[in-house]
Simulated assay, not measured.
Amino acid sequence: MDSTMRLFTKAVTWQVAGFFSMMLIGFIFTGSVAASSGIAFVGSVAGFVSYFAHEMAWARVSWGRGINPARTHLNAGKNAVEY
């Protein structure tokens, strides 16, 4: 499970990259640096909050995670081998 600080850092770095992508796309459509900056800023804040909440929710879900190898048994009897 990732720590909250790790999730926060991942969300920030993702949004920095997304900000510049959104700004470029906004500029292509509007031709305005001010409008594209505003679009990118609002989109980044909304995306950051959504991504962070999504990661926090998935951090609580155990589905799809690997089995802990220390608890895996080859045999069920008293001669079971643990890894």
Rank of each mutant, 00 (worst) to 15 (best):
T13A: 07
Y83N: 00
S62G: 12
R65K: 06
I67D: 08
W58M: 15
G64L: 09
M22L: 10
T13G: 03
F52Q: 11
F48L: 12
F20S: 06
S32Y: 14
E55K: 13
F8S: 14
H73G: 11
G47K: 00
F8K: 14
T30F: 07
I25K: 02
W58C: 10
N75P: 05
F41S: 09
M22P: 09
M23P: 11
T9R: 06
F52A: 15
A17G: 14
F41D: 09
N68I: 03
I28R: 04
N75C: 03
R71N: 04
F29D: 00
A76S: 08
F52S: 12
P69G: 10
S21D: 03
V12M: 01
R6E: 13
D2K: 15
D2L: 13
S32C: 04
H54Q: 12
A53I: 10
I25Y: 00
S62I: 14
A70C: 06
S50Q: 05
A40E: 02
G43N: 04
S21R: 00
R71S: 03
W14G: 05
G26H: 01
K10C: 00
G26K: 01
V42F: 10
V12R: 02
W14E: 14
W63I: 04
P69K: 01
S21L: 15
I25Q: 12
G77D: 00
W63R: 09
G66P: 03
G38D: 07
A34G: 10
M56T: 09
G43T: 11
G64Q: 09
A11I: 10
V33M: 05
M22R: 09
G31H: 02
A35P: 12
I28G: 08
L24G: 09
T4V: 15
F48T: 09
W63D: 11
A80T: 09
L7T: 11
I67V: 07
I25A: 03
S44A: 14
V42Q: 02
M1A: 13
H54V: 02
M22Q: 10
F8E: 08
N75Q: 15
S44G: 14
W14R: 03
S36Q: 07
V81Q: 05
A34L: 11
T9A: 11
A11T: 15
T9V: 01
G66R: 01
F27Y: 03
L7I: 14
F29G: 13
A57P: 03
Q15F: 10
G47W: 04
F27W: 07
K78G: 01
S32M: 07
R60D: 02
V16F: 12
K78Y: 03
S44K: 00
